[in-house]
Amino acid sequence: MTQTDIARLAFYVLLLVVIGGAMLFELSGKGGRALRQMLVWVVIFAGVALGADWYLDATAPRQQVMDQGTRIKIPAGRGGHFHLQATLNGTPIDFIVDTGATHIALSRRDAAAIGLDPDRLRFSGVAVTANGRVKTAPVTIERLAIGEVVDRDVPAVVIDSQLQDSLLGMSYLRRFTTISFQGDMLILER
């Protein structure tokens, strides 16, 4: 479960607690019948919205690795971004494919997940992002796998910011001979 999923769940739980608490107050005899019925429908709507949100995430199309890993098809996500999962040093990491990013940019959380200690890194570089300038620390990913394709000693940076998602930038995408779009599908070929 990602931090986005946790935040989304916390929001819905808080929403249900607030609405449910208000509904209990009203049902204790202090409110009118119409207000009680309206609150019941609000709680039902919030529950359906939560279920639909989880269902859409669970059933969202994922990348397809074909032709012994030489062709990767990535469908656009709900926000229009292309999300790809790669295995770094044996750990699955979710990326946003970002042709505007120069390097593979790891979040502090993902860096820690693959065995790097962000507190011990030397943040000597600078990256210009949509949110301004951020410090970066150069690192090397020992093993990066997407399906059957394995690359070793892949250069990357760790971003010293509140970056939630790691970015798969051009330094890695250039390893593919073809990057193309077919409708809402991104295709990477080696």
Rank of each mutant, 00 (worst) to 15 (best):
V40W: 03
R122F: 09
L167K: 01
A156Q: 00
G169K: 00
L24Q: 14
D67H: 15
T91G: 00
E142H: 12
A130I: 04
L35Q: 12
D165S: 10
A156V: 01
D110Y: 00
T177F: 09
W41F: 06
R78F: 14
S171I: 07
Q68K: 03
T59R: 10
T178E: 08
Q162M: 11
P118S: 05
A113I: 01
N131L: 08
L39R: 05
R133M: 07
D160Q: 08
L84Y: 09
G90D: 06
V139H: 06
A105D: 05
T178I: 01
A101Q: 13
L168Y: 02
R175I: 06
V65H: 04
A130P: 01
R120F: 00
D184M: 08
P61T: 06
E26D: 15
R108Q: 10
D160R: 01
A60H: 14
T129Y: 11
E26P: 02
V158C: 03
T129D: 13
P61V: 02
T99K: 05
E26A: 15
A49F: 12
D57H: 08
D98F: 08
A101E: 09
D94T: 02
A86C: 12
R133H: 09
L88K: 02
M1R: 11
P118K: 01
G47D: 00
T91A: 03
F11L: 15
I44K: 03
S124W: 07
R62W: 09
G80K: 10
A101F: 09
H83L: 15
H103P: 10
Q164E: 15
A60Q: 14
R122N: 09
A58R: 11
V150N: 06
R36G: 12
G125N: 06
A111D: 00
K135G: 11
Q162D: 15
S161N: 05
L168G: 03
I179Q: 05
P138S: 05
G147T: 06
G51T: 02
F82G: 10
V48N: 12
L84W: 12
R120G: 07
D117W: 02
M38V: 04
A113H: 06
D98H: 06
R36Q: 15
V139C: 08
I19V: 13
V126W: 10
K30G: 12
L16K: 00
I93H: 04
G29S: 03
R120V: 02
D110W: 03
D160W: 02
R190L: 14
I104K: 10
D67V: 07
A105L: 08
D160E: 09
A34C: 00
P118Y: 02
F45Y: 11
Y55C: 10
A22Y: 04
A130S: 11
A60K: 15
I146Q: 11
S107F: 07
R152W: 02
A76V: 07
L163D: 09
L27I: 08
A34T: 00
F95V: 09
P118W: 03
G21D: 11
T140G: 05
G20S: 05
L116S: 01
I187V: 14
K30S: 15
R62Q: 15
R120A: 00
L56N: 11
R8F: 13
Q182K: 13
L27P: 02
D110G: 01
R190D: 13
S171W: 06
G77L: 12
R109M: 01
G115E: 08
A7N: 13
H83I: 14
L167D: 03
Q162S: 15
Q68Y: 04
E148P: 10
T177W: 04
D94Q: 10
I96F: 04
R108H: 08
T136S: 01
M1N: 14
